[in-house]
Design a binder for these strands. Structure first.
Lengths: 251, 251
DNA sequence: GCAAAAGTGTTGACTATACACCCATGC
DNA sequence: GCATGGGTGTATAGTCAACACTTTTGC
């Protein structure tokens, strides 16, 4: 529903709607900004300067302004927190909305959570005044403020799942990337090594997943054969999916 | 974030937080209640009695009350709209949150959308006072009020996708069901016929998906061999997934 | 030459699909 | 008997994981 006026099922505002009749809800966005750096999954965190949870790390975020959608607010916050000039191309994935009444001790806050995927990690960036912002490894991102541990875990799970059946992975890579870099994205997010020849074949067998940059090549580790460069293709879904290795027994 | 007080990046409420400082947001839930009846995917819709969109069909829903989470509100609305006594076992799936500033012409409404899956379709139920509630086939669910067409489409897509890799399908079935009924869920939601022998094998090959009810059998269409009955098993995810037939060419 | 990373080839095991076929029931 | 829906068997094509092998670079 959408301001279900005159509905019998809920006895509210039966003839009109008083905007201030209820305790107002604050609507915020929380961002799980993820990147892969040096083969490690990292997340952008801010240190809180005030109570509650002063001194604790938390996901960046902020209020949705009156004229904004949650997506717009998330993109604005992303630009502010990372210091990036242009965030219009970055992938923003709405995770879900967290609305437990007691998730913020001060007031009623409903938060729309997003996951953002960053290719090249911009440096920490001067946070603001009293708080600092830093990239921290996902694994050591200790207990976070509020319910942000859960949000971060949900973000990781969602991104891991979407790598399987969508063309999300190039969002973690620069505009031109090698298949080795793409594979490292999968391995880092999933935490599993993959067989390189088979990974190549699957990626190249999916039309529109990646397309070669003609003639281009780049050295990756300083040693070894220069790798061919690829761009993201036009496809959005992966058919067939690139399933992560089954962790344990199945049929 | 969660009431990001004292954050420099957004200049709000730098020392405290005035609950009424901003135009308040109304937070509502919208429900796409789906069921499979007579091999047809149906959705529960209510007819609006007031402007805007008076006389139009819309998804059921309502306000999130001050003490409720969105999930709690959705379950309460589900019970009210369907008239079911116990909705605690029904599967509720949070879809996403719709927050475009102009989605409701009257005021700022942020809506958390859910999909609900119903096994046995309870009859339309007397809606309330001026509005009626009805089951309508998904395909003919004409233009709905607000952005509810999009929400409904998102619900369909999500449910269709989740059938592939989770054990969601029994949520559409009564506690004990035949494999034919289970197959009809897949065929109805996906809109594709499936090969019965192969469907059986895949379902039975997934441990924990369904478990047989010992000795039980039931006639389905009045004719034919009585079918064995199954219960939902303990598993939640499907490994390997039960992929829908690829619509067109792939590699 | 050697190590390292990219890229190609091959093989055997598994899986899926498309059927044909049998069983039990109502009319 | 026959129509209808449940249930079983099977052969073929296809796919995938594992691993051996070649290529190109820096040192």
């Amino acid at each position: 529903m959408t301001a279900p006026v005159g509905r019998a099922s809920n006895g509210h505002a039966p003839g009109g709607y008083d905007k201030h009749a209820y305790e107002p809800f604050a609507v915020t966005v929380d961002l799980a900004v993820l990147t892969v750096r040096d083969g490690v999954l990292q997340v952008l965190l801010v240190e809180r300067g005030h109570e509650p949870y002063a001194g604790h790390w938390a996901l960046p975020g902020g209020f949705v302004l009156p004229h904004e959608s949650a997506e717009t607010a998330a993109r604005r916050e992303l630009a502010e927190e990372t210091g990036l000039k242009d965030v219009s191309e970055l992938h923003l994935e709405q995770l879900r909305t967290y609305s437990e009444p007691d998730r913020d001790p001060r007031m009623r806050v409903v938060s729309v959570a997003f996951a953002a995927l960053l290719p090249h990690p911009p440096e920490p960036h001067g946070g603001g005044d009293a708080v600092q912002a830093r990239w921290l490894p996902y694994d050591t991102a200790g207990p976070l403020a509020f319910d942000h541990d859960r949000i971060l875990a949900d973000a990781h799970e969602r991104v891991g799942a979407k790598l399987e059946y969508t063309c999300l992975a190039p969002s973690f890579c620069p505009p031109e990337f090698t298949l080795g870099e793409l594979q490292q994205v999968y391995e880092t997010v999933w935490g599993t090594p993959l067989d390189r020849p088979n990974f190549r074949r699957k990626v190249l067998a999916t039309p529109g997943f990646v397309e070669p940059v003609p003639g281009a090549a780049r050295l990756t580790g300083g040693r070894g054969k220069p790798a061919a460069l690829y761009r993201a293709g036009g496809a959005t879904t992966l058919h067939p999916p690139l399933l992560r290795p089954t962790p344990e027994g199945r049929s």
